[in-house]
């Protein structure tokens, strides 16, 4: 059973950018892809406990602000050292201009 949480408005995130979203002692990163889709991942890099919200979105990659490791935020796949472990991803839906994430997925 999905547990959809209202995270933000679609207009809260610039295209090709991300924001931080905290909920119930969990932290997430929500992305606005260049083509307009939205995605969500765990907030912290799997290499070290650094939040990705200060990182750089380049196409479908998020680059960690501390060590420049990269993930594909659509799949969570680690794409560039020093990250090796994948990033957890969460389902997203958009309704009435709001972005919802399934935090229990």
């Amino acid at each position: 059973m999905p547990h959809w949480i209202d995270a933000c408005a679609t207009g809260d995130i610039d295209a090709e950018d991300l924001i931080r979203f905290d909920h119930a002692n969990q932290t997430f990163a929500i992305y606005h892809a260049p083509e307009g889709d939205f995605y969500a991942t765990a907030g912290q890099c799997t290499h070290e406990a650094v939040h990705l919200c200060d990182g750089l979105v380049m196409g479908h990659l998020i680059e960690c602000p501390k060590h420049n490791g990269q993930f594909d935020y659509r799949t969570g796949e680690a794409k560039r050292a020093p990250v090796c472990a994948p990033l957890r991803t969460y389902p997203v839906k958009v309704e009435d201009g709001r972005v919802f994430i399934d935090v229990d997925a």
């Binding site: 290499h47 070290e48 501390k66 060590h67 050292a81 020093p82």
Partner: peptide, 10 residues
Amino acid sequence: WRWSHARHHT
């Protein structure tokens, strides 16, 4: 050195 430099930044 890719890893040692990551540690240097951490």
